[in-house]
Write a protein that binds this DNA or RNA. Structure first.
Length: 354
DNA sequence: AAGGCGGGGTA
DNA sequence: TACCCAGCCTT
């Protein structure tokens, strides 16, 4: 246990000297920590920064978030990915207003009752915002500790995470340890020194002398992780349908992939120009002109979209189906459109040549 | 335990 | 190209 203590102390000293200045570290209130931790799930620090700043400006507290309409919070999340995060964030804000008098609860057990908060996030909020000795085990922490112990357990296994949580629970109650600091230090070490891609910067590591993986030169074998299965490919035809006044969009279903976001009307499979015209007619619209536009590919974690595009000019009038007809400004302002359709946004407002 | 769920950086 | 990122939820 004494070896653990000296490791923990050395890591915290390293952290105090090397911690990055991050927006959510300026004033780590429970709300600030909560929002930042949700945004940081499976998402890099640099990607989160501008979203975090804008989110805090627009929704500075739990009440503002609880009262926020879906279109606004989805727009604030547009492009960040994993959109159920912000849906759960909003639901949890309502939960906090109703059950906890507008303040985040100060226990891991209660935090776990909130939508979108699992073991890691509950531990992060409990330790960083409330100073409680709760572990916060993410991918960084698993990698760092597996290397420290030269341990080849599968980090994709739930049992591995449990073991690490149990180990850290002891570290966090050691004399002179600030739980929030140690948890952040473990993650910071993983982000800056014991990096996931390429060789770790062992010369800069506060654990260099005690790290088994460094001694045994096994860093490239650790962590062990079961591979995920290959992506499936889906072919789609995407339509940028316009008339003189506006453009047509479709709101996706409230569950599943890209839930609740807006998309260009599209159909399964690759359409010829003739088939494309038929598809547009099936939307309840009368095409005037059509031309092929760019192909595009978008890679999700588990799916690959291969897209073929057509720009279509249609007669004035609403669609007979569930398409929404809006002017460009309204679309920009109110519609959250996923990055998958980035290649087609440039055709909005562009004349369709014969 | 396994699969669904985004998007982008990096080697 | 493949892997990973301050993971969570559903089945």
């Amino acid at each position: 246990m004494e070896a653990h203590r000296s490791n923990a102390i050395a890591l915290c000293e390293w952290f105090r000297a090397n911690a990055r200045e991050l927006p959510w570290r300026e004033l780590p209130s429970p709300y600030h920590v909560w929002i930042s931790e949700i945004m940081l799930q499976q998402t890099r620090v640099e990607a989160v920064k501008p979203y975090y700043m804008r989110f805090m400006e627009r929704l500075p507290d739990v009440q503002a978030l609880a009262n926020c309409p879906e279109s606004v919070y989805l727009k604030l999340w547009e492009g960040l990915g994993y959109y159920s995060r912000v849906r759960n964030l909003h639901a949890a804000a309502e939960q906090i207003m109703e059950q906890f008098d507008g303040r985040l609860p100060a226990s891991k057990e209660e935090l776990l009752q909130l939508k979108g908060i699992g073991s890691y996030t509950a531990g992060a909020i409990a330790s960083i915002a409330f100073g409680l000795p709760e572990p916060a085990v993410d991918g960084n922490v698993l990698r760092v500790l597996m290397r420290l112990m030269d341990c080849k357990w599968d980090i994709a296994a739930a049992s591995t995470k449990k073991q690490v949580e149990t180990l850290l629970a002891d570290w966090l109650t050691l004399d002179g340890i600030r739980p929030g600091e140690l948890n952040q230090a473990l993650m910071e070490l993983g982000a800056l020194v014991c990096v996931p891609n390429g060789a770790p910067h062992c010369a800069d590591c506060p654990w260099q002398a005690s790290c088994r993986s460094c001694q045994n030169q096994t860093w490239d074998q650790i962590p062990v992780k079961t591979p995920k299965r290959p992506r499936r490919i889906e072919e789609k035809t995407v339509f940028v349908i316009q008339n003189q006044d506006g453009v047509f969009f479709h709101k996706r279903a409230s569950k599943g992939l890209l839930a609740g976001l807006y998309e260009f009307p599209n159909v399964e499979g690759f359409c010829t120009q003739e088939e494309a015209l038929e598809a547009v007619k099936s939307f309840g619209l009368r095409p005037i002109r059509i031309r092929p536009i760019t192909d595009a590919k978008h890679i999700f974690t588990h799916i690959e979209w291969h897209m073929k595009g057509y720009a279509v000019m249609v007669e004035l009038g609403e669609a007979g189906t569930d398409l929404l007809y809006v002017d460009v400004e309204q679309a920009q302002r109110e519609f959250s459109i996923p990055s998958a359709f980035r290649a087609y946004k440039q055709y909005i407002g562009v004349e369709v040549e014969k």
